Amino acid sequence: MGPSRKTSTSDFPWWLVVLALAAAYAFGQTLTSEVHAQVLAVLSQGIGITLLVTVSAFAGASLLGLLLALGGLSRFLVIRQAAKLYIEIIRGVPIIVLLLYVAFAGVPLVVEGWNMLTGALGLDPIRTRDISLLWRAVIALILAYSAFLAEVFRAGIVAVDPGQIEAAKALGLGGWLRFRLIVAPQAFRTILPPYGNDFIAMVKDSSLVSVLGVTDVTQLGKVTAVGNFRYFETYNLVALIYLTLTVTLSLALTRLERHLNRRNQG
């Protein structure tokens, strides 16, 4: 009885209590301080952009990453090597460099090539300015995270017992059915922790879009701090907003993992 009580106490999330107290203090300051209230009102306008960038980029990166993972496991040498080349190049470039490259070099180059193609077909050209900086940032994050997610997906697929796949083949299941019914469910349980961690990392890395002037939480924080010279209060609230998002997602991920483990044990 004694050891279990000790283990329970040691496992108590005291860090969460400390964070909750800090959040409560910041919330109290917002209610009682006009400066905090004004700053939070401005920053809250960027939360929607932050979530839009995060969800859009992660969804696109997941799809591209899955295709890269399947390409890396292809029986064709050219496809395997092409996928590996892409992954190694993208993983070797800092995200902020990739962001700037896509926004100011990659997109104009693609637009120029597209206009050459459509011009030959007699279609109207498009302008680089027609593609907003917001979506250029999303494209860059998709490219960046797809390389990391490809390795996550590949590891999950490889971890599936080959004997089960062979058994599915013996039962006459085609490639798509084998993937949907055998590989995907088991791979999902394996990749869930790193996959969820990458999503949380995406929330934080979405702040990089502020270098392009996209009005997310970070950009609005910079503009607000420059305008009111209240750097301490402003960046405290910026950090608190990101902490709230990431800790909430982390707790939700932990709860989902425990739920899936209970189902598997049951």
Rank of each mutant, 00 (worst) to 15 (best):
Phe199Arg: 06
Phe148Asp: 00
Ala168Ile: 02
Arg5Asn: 01
Asn261Phe: 10
Lys222Phe: 09
Val183Gln: 09
Met1Cys: 02
Phe153His: 04
Ala225Phe: 10
Thr7Pro: 00
Leu134Pro: 04
Leu68Trp: 12
Val223Glu: 09
Leu260Gln: 13
Leu40Ala: 15
Val39Tyr: 13
Pro162Leu: 04
Leu68His: 11
Val209Ala: 07
Leu141Phe: 02
Lys84Asn: 13
Val110Lys: 14
Arg154Thr: 00
Leu31Lys: 05
Pro185Thr: 09
Thr234Met: 10
Ala26Phe: 05
Glu88Ile: 14
Ala184Glu: 02
Leu19Glu: 04
Ala184Thr: 01
Ser10Ile: 13
Gly119Arg: 14
Pro3Met: 12
Leu181Arg: 15
Ala239Tyr: 03
Ile126Gln: 09
Phe188Gln: 04
Ser207Glu: 10
Val17Trp: 08
Ala82Tyr: 06
Tyr145Gly: 00
Val39Ser: 10
Leu133Cys: 12
Ile96Glu: 02
Val217Trp: 13
Ser10Ala: 15
Val102Ala: 08
Ile241Gly: 03
Ala159Cys: 03
Lys84Thr: 12
Gly156Tyr: 06
Ala239Glu: 01
Leu134Ala: 03
Ala159Leu: 00
Glu151Trp: 01
Ser132Cys: 08
Gly92Ile: 11
Leu70Glu: 04
Val160Arg: 03
Arg180Tyr: 07
Leu143Gln: 01
Val138Asn: 02
Ser207Pro: 12
Arg263Gly: 15
Gly119Val: 07
Ser206Glu: 03
Tyr25Met: 06
Asp198Ile: 07
Asp11Tyr: 11
Thr190Trp: 09
Val217Asn: 11
Arg230Tyr: 11
Ser146Asp: 00
Pro13Trp: 12
Phe188Gly: 02
Ser44Phe: 08
Ala59Pro: 14
Gln164Ile: 01
Leu133Trp: 13
Thr190Gly: 04
Glu112Tyr: 11
Lys169Asp: 06
Trp114Val: 11
Pro193Ala: 12
Glu151Ala: 00
Thr32Arg: 05
Pro94Trp: 01
Asp161Arg: 00
Tyr101Glu: 07
Thr30Ser: 12
Thr215Met: 11
Thr32Cys: 01
Val42Tyr: 06
Trp135Met: 13
Asp11Gly: 15
Asn115Cys: 10
Met1Ala: 02
Arg258Lys: 05
Arg75Trp: 05
Gly156Phe: 07
Ala239Phe: 12
Asn228Trp: 15
Gly46His: 08
Leu149Met: 04
Arg5Tyr: 02
Arg5Glu: 05
Ala170Tyr: 09
Phe76Glu: 04
Ile87Gly: 05
Phe153Glu: 02
Leu245Thr: 07
Arg180Trp: 08
Leu181Phe: 14
Thr54Arg: 03
Thr32Pro: 00
Ser206Gln: 07
Leu192Arg: 03
Gln81Ser: 15
Arg91Pro: 01
Ser132Tyr: 07
Val53Asn: 04
Val53Gln: 03
Val110Leu: 15
Val78Gly: 08
Val226Trp: 12
Val78Tyr: 10
Ser206Asn: 09
Phe12Gln: 10
Ala37Asp: 13
Ala105Arg: 09
Ala26Glu: 03
Lys222Gly: 04
Ile49Glu: 09
Gln164Thr: 04
Ile131Glu: 01
Phe104Arg: 00
Leu100Ser: 02
Leu70Arg: 05
Val55Pro: 00
Gly227Asp: 12
Val102Asp: 08
Thr54Tyr: 01
Ile96Cys: 06
Gln186Asp: 06
